[in-house]
Design a protein around this nucleic acid. Structure first.
Length: 492
RNA sequence: GGGGCUAUAGGGUAGCUUGGUCCAUCCUUUCAGGUUUGGGACCUGAAGACCCCGGUUCAAAUCCGGGUAGCCCCA
């Protein structure tokens, strides 16, 4: 947010994405970062409504797949945290609460980072028998921890919108089925509803969540070609159940450790993707169903008051009719000029605009404009409903098409290290390369790759179906036989 | 985690090098009134700022130290 004013976005998205992103967040009133504490921000109404749609979509899918809602407290006992650290080596920079007013607490407690540490000790008390499983539950709320990396609104913060499910099963097979279900949920929510294309990766062994047997992530690309990890799903195996003693009696009356998965869609990350990927030089672009206001009605006034009143009446009636049909509609009858209003609502990403003025009123027409193309179409008022449906559909198609084109344009192949380096420095994006191993023995090659490409990560192999490697293909780093096709990208 | 840059009204800025001319410039914004309305209209009037703490000095927006926050580059 360096050189901006109050009149629209002053930079081109393609030329300076960072600045563009900051400006959209400020000018479309998505968030206010001026709270004076690093990594914390205000979710402003417009942005909060969009974010809440993401929550709603997720909750809907979680309910459909028989997850229960639950809510754990913000305070975590120190002992629980330490147990995880011992076991999994996972020690986030948690915030500690040490005082109440001026009085020092007898025992400090942590503000919860992710849920494992506080949920699993409780889970160990809840389940006794395989009959009580599967248990599938989720909570959605903000979480905090002191991230030492550079913070960015909706991409990396010290407090951020979070969603997590923690499931318990009696067999490993069910874990694997759950991973598939999670992936299906992501397809429905992130791809279908939010129109964000992504690859679903199985992470390399060295880069999985500590304490997980395997980690799976949907990753997309931001307009600067850097990877945005949108969520993560973990096959926890019995690692945590052993650490936290989550035991059940199985059918054969034997005690056994439970099997677990956890899943964390990054609400913020999904927001960042919607803002960054769909938006254009005029501001935000939102899928029709996600927009806080879907249709803005703009009157173009006459000189004669009587005619003005006619326009106002017609717009009010139109608003009422459309609202009854379930659309979210706003009339902008402010004193600003039409041009100002056009720009204003485009900045906020309102999907459809309807203009009614002298020209339209004369022969019962209306002008309809969709946010993506910004072309004006004159229609008969009596066809308004149909036109809205049609334009809304087209808008969503435009958004999907643009996003998919951007995504596929930025996936490249390479089997030459020099070439890879060149791509990583120039275009970035995903680069598909032959690689020796995604097991721990491939880590050295990944380190080399990262060092020499200025931060390129081996994101993993495609999941559920990894791509085939030719029999003669060599690892792009060490030159030994390649066993995998992996994707490389710089990351947020 | 390392390095660099920056901080002046709600937003964007001028002033800082060489301390005084600054009860701080201009644009935008907000409010009142008038006028106008098909891609960021106009006129008149009003409102609104030197990030925080400390230091140097007769005097600090300006110089020095620390803090905090933001941005950029690199890991």
């Amino acid at each position: 947010m360096t050189k901006t004013d109050n009149k629209g976005i002053t930079v081109k998205k393609a030329e300076n994405f960072s600045e563009w992103y900051s400006q959209v967040i400020q000018k479309a009133k998505l968030a206010d970062i001026r709270v004076g504490v690093q990594g914390f921000l205000v979710h402003r109404p417009w942005g909060f409504r969009i974010m809440r749609r993401v929550y709603e979509y997720l909750e809907e899918e979680f309910e459909k797949t028989e997850h229960e809602p639950m809510l754990f407290p913000i305070a975590v006992k120190e002992e629980s945290l330490m147990k995880e650290e011992e076991h999994a080596g996972f020690s986030p920079e948690v915030f500690w609460v040490t005082h109440a007013g001026t009085r020092k607490l007898e025992e400090r407690f942590a503000l919860r980072p992710t849920g494992e540490t506080q949920i699993y000790p409780v889970y160990s008390k809840w389940f006794r028998s395989y009959n009580e499983l599967p248990f599938k539950a989720y909570q959605s709320r903000h979480t905090v921890f002191r991230n030492e990396m550079t913070t960015r609104p909706f991409l990396r913060g010290r407090e951020f919108a979070f969603f997590e499910s923690h499931n318990v099963f009696s067999t490993h097979k069910e874990c694997l089925a759950q991973i598939d279900e999670d992936m299906d949920i992501l397809n429905k929510v992130v791809k279908d509803k939010c129109k964000i294309p992504f690859f679903y990766f199985q992470r390399p062994q060295w880069d999985k969540f500590k304490g997980a047997d395997n980690t799976f992530t949907p990753d997309t690309l931001m307009p600067d070609g850097k990877r945005n990890q949108l969520a993560s799903t973990h096959d926890l195996g019995q690692n945590f159940s052993k650490a936290y003693d989550i035991q059940i009696t199985d059918k054969k009356e034997k005690q056994q450790y439970a099997w677990q998965t956890c899943f964390g869609p990054g609400i913020w990350r999904i927001m960042a993707a919607i803002i960054g990927i769909h938006g254009d030089d005029n501001g935000l672009i939102l899928p029709f169903d996600m927009a806080p206001k879907q249709i803005v009605l703009i009157p173009i006034f006459f000189k004669e008051k009587a005619e003005q009143n006619k326009v106002s009446k017609l717009l009010n009636k139109t608003k009422n009719d459309l609202t009854k049909k379930g659309y979210r509609v706003i009339i902008d009858d402010s004193e600003n000029s039409p041009g100002f209003k056009f720009n204003h609502w485009e900045l906020f990403g309102v999907p459809l605009r309807i203009e009614i003025g002298p020209r339209e009123l004369k022969d019962n027409k209306a002008t309809i404009v969709r946010r993506t193309s910004r072309d004006k179409t004159v229609i008969n008022i009596k066809d308004l409903d149909k036109s809205i449906e049609k334009e809304a559909k087209k808008l969503d198609e435009d958004i999907t098409k643009n996003a998919e084109k951007y995504f596929s344009d930025n996936v490249r192949d390479s089997n030459d290290f020099k070439d890879l380096k060149k791509i990583m420095n120039k275009n970035r994006g995903f680069v598909r390369v032959p690689f020796c191993s995604v097991d721990f023995d491939g880590e050295d090659c990944a380190d080399t790759l990262k060092a020499e490409t200025n931060g390129g990560n081996v994101c993993g192999t495609l999941f559920p179906k990894a791509e085939k490697v030719g029999p003669k293909e060599k690892c792009i780093i060490c030159g030994k036989k390649a066993h995998h096709k992996v994707y490389v990208a710089k990351s947020y």
